[in-house]
Amino acid sequence: MSDTIALDVAGLAKTYRSPGRDVEAVRDLTFQIRRGELVCIVGPSGAGKTTLLRCIAGLLDLSGGQIRLDGTAVTEPPAGMAVVFQEYGRSLFPWLTVRGNVELPLKEKGLAKAARAAKVAEALDAVGLPDSADAHPWQLSGGMQQRVAIARAIAYEPSVLLMDEPFAAVDAQTRADLEDLVRTLWKRLGVTVLFVTHDIDESVYLGQRVLVLSNRPTVVLEDVPVDLPDDRDQLTTRSSPQFTKIRTHVYELVQSAKRGERPEVR
C-alpha cells in the first residue's frame, strides 16, 4: 500500500518565528496523496495554503511533522517535484525566451542538448504553444505566460506537480481553458498533481478529491471525494446535479472554516 503513496504529509506544523512575535500558520496537517492522483486544496484566504505548498516544495523549513515524497523526507526542494507559481509574470525569467525558460531547468538537470530540445518542443506542443518558442514571455498574454510556466514544469518531468493558485490572475475564459489543459496533461502524463486554489468551483471541477482547510492555525477540515465522471467538460460537468451537490458541500465547509469552525480535537 505504502508504495502507491506519492506524497505523505504527517503532522505538518509551521510557525513563523520573529523576535517578539510567533505566528502559528499551520498547526497539524496530515494527508496522503496517492500516485497519479489529482487533489485540490481549498480554504479561506489566509488559511496557510501557500505556506503548506511552500513547505511541500521544500522552500520552507517545517516547525514540526514530516513530509515524504516517494518515501524520502523533504528537507530541500526535491528532484521529482515541479512548482507552478501564481505569479507567472514574475516566475518566468524575462531575459530568456520561452524556449530558454523551459530549457533552463533541464540544463541545470544536466540533460544533453538534443534531449533538451526534444523535451522543450514536446512540452510547448503539449500546452498549445508550439510557435511561441522564440518569443519573450512579456510578449505573450497572461494565459500564454502561465502555459509557458506549465510547459517548464512538465518538461522537467516531475512525479509530483504542485500548483499554487496558478489561474488566480487570468480572466475567466482563459481560466476554463487552462483548467481543461491541466486535466488533459494530468491524464496524459500520469503525473500526481496537488492543486491549491481559493476557487471552490475550480477545486471540484479539477480534483478527484478536495481537501478543505480550516482557518489559521490550519488543520484539514474535511477530505471531500469528488465522485464525478473522469471525462469532464466545462458545460455539462459544471451543470450536473452531482457537481452542484459537491460544490455546495465544499462551499458550506469553507464558510464554516471562515467562521472559525474546526474539527474535534483528537
Binding site: R54, A57, G58, L59, E76, P77, A79, M81, A82, V83, F85, E87, R90, S91, F93, L104, P105, E108, K109, Y156
Partner: peptide, 18 residues
C-alpha cells in the same frame, strides 16, 4: 532579485553558482 524568481530557481534545484 524577485523572491518568486528565487523560489522558482530553488524549486528546480539550481546550484548556488547557477
Amino acid at each position: 532579485v524577485d523572491p518568486v524568481v528565487r523560489d522558482t530557481a530553488r524549486s528546480y534545484r539550481f546550484s548556488r553558482w547557477a
